[in-house]
Design a protein around this nucleic acid. Structure first.
Lengths: 159, 159
DNA sequence: GGGAACTCCTACCGCGTTGGTAGGATTGGG
DNA sequence: CCCAATCCTACCAACGCGGTAGGAGTTCCC
C-alpha cells in the first residue's frame, strides 16, 4: 500500500468538496455519508488539510468546510504531503535538508556510495512528478462524468 | 516508507553480488558482513530472488549465490516486484486482471467514477517507469566509483 | 567419513503504525 | 437555549514489518 487511507480519504474529501461546494460550506457529515466513510476519522483528516491551508472552515451550525483555493491550482503533491507528512520517504534520506547532493547515512560505510539511494531518489522523483501533474479540478472532472454509456449492465466486481 | 527493507536489502544484495561475483558463487555470510545486514533475514530475502530466477544458488561448502543473468539485463521493476510482491499497490485495484480498463471497487458506488483510482494509477505508472529504467549494472557502477575527491573530511551525519 | 560451511525451511515474536472509536469542549444559528 | 457543527485528545485492536531461533538437507575438504 503505497499510500495510507489518509491520502485516499483526504483526496476523496477534497473531490467531494469541489463537487458539492459552491460558495457555502459543506459539513463533514454530508461528505461522510456521500462517500461512506467514518465521520470521526474524517475529522482528523480534514484537520491536516486545514493546517496546510487547503481548506477553510466555519464553525457552528450550518458550518462546514470549503476549498480555500480554486481546484485548478491545487496539485496533488501538496495534498498528499499535507496528509501523509512526507511523499515517498525512505529510511535512507531522513534529513536531506535542501541541498541537491546525494547524501546518505550509508555513504562511505564501506568505501563506496550507497546504490539504493540513487534508485529511491529516482522513484521518489517519479511519484512526485505524477502527483504534481495532477490537479484537483482534473479529479473532480473525472468523477463528474459518470461513466458514459454504461447502463446497469455492470460487469461488476462483486458479481 | 514507500518500500520495505526487503527491497532495500534485496537490491543491496544484488549489487554486492554484482561487485564480488566473478563466476564463483558468493556466500550470504560474506554479503551480510560487507553490508552489515542480519544474515538470517537475508536468507529469506534471497529466497524471493531465487524464486524469481534472478539469482542461482549452489549448496554445500563453498556454495553461495550468483546472478543468473547479466546485470545489464536486470531491471529494478522485476527486482522490486519479486521482493515486495507488488510494486505500488492500492487497496483500490486488488485484482485488476490484465485489462487496461479502469475498474475499481468504488466504481459507480454513488453514480460517479472513483477519482482516486485515476491518481493512484498515474503514481504507480511513475514508480514503475522509474524502476524499469534503472538496471542493476547502473547501480553497481554507481556504487563502485567511490565518491571522488572526498577525503576523511566527511561532513558527517552523526557529527 | 566426519566435520565444516553452506543453503534451505518454518515457526515464532516484539514493536510501531494504521485505522477507527469515544467523549467531550467550543462555537454559532434559529 | 438547544442543536448542529467544528475541534481536540486520549484510547484501542489489528496488522505488517523486521528480526530471531532452530533445525534439516547438501556438498566440499581433510
Amino acid at each position: 500500500m503505497i499510500f495510507t487511507t489518509k491520502a485516499e480519504y483526504g483526496v476523496r474529501l477534497l473531490v467531494e468538496l469541489g463537487r458539492q461546494g459552491s460558495g457555502h460550506p459543506v459539513s463533514l457529515k454530508a461528505i461522510a455519508e456521500a462517500e461512506g466513510l467514518p465521520l470521526a476519522y474524517l475529522e482528523r483528516i480534514v484537520a491536516l488539510l486545514k493546517k496546510a491551508a487547503l481548506v477553510e472552515s466555519t464553525r457552528g451550525a450550518h458550518g462546514g468546510y470549503r476549498l480555500s483555493r480554486a481546484p485548478e491550482s491545487i496539485t496533488m503533491d501538496e495534498v498528499v504531503l499535507a496528509l501523509e507528512g512526507a511523499v515517498a520517504p525512505m529510511s535512507c534520506f531522513v534529513d536531506d535538508s535542501e541541498e541537491g547532493r546525494v547524501l546518505c547515512s550509508h555513504v562511505d560505510d564501506h568505501g563506496h556510495a550507497c546504490a539504493t539511494k540513487l534508485l529511491w531518489t529516482r522513484v521518489q522523483g517519479g511519484v512526485i512528478k505524477a502527483l504534481a501533474h495532477t490537479t484537483l479540478s482534473e479529479l473532480i472532472a473525472f468523477s463528474e462524468r459518470a461513466l458514459p454509456a454504461m447502463p446497469a449492465k455492470a460487469p461488476a466486481v462483486v458479481a
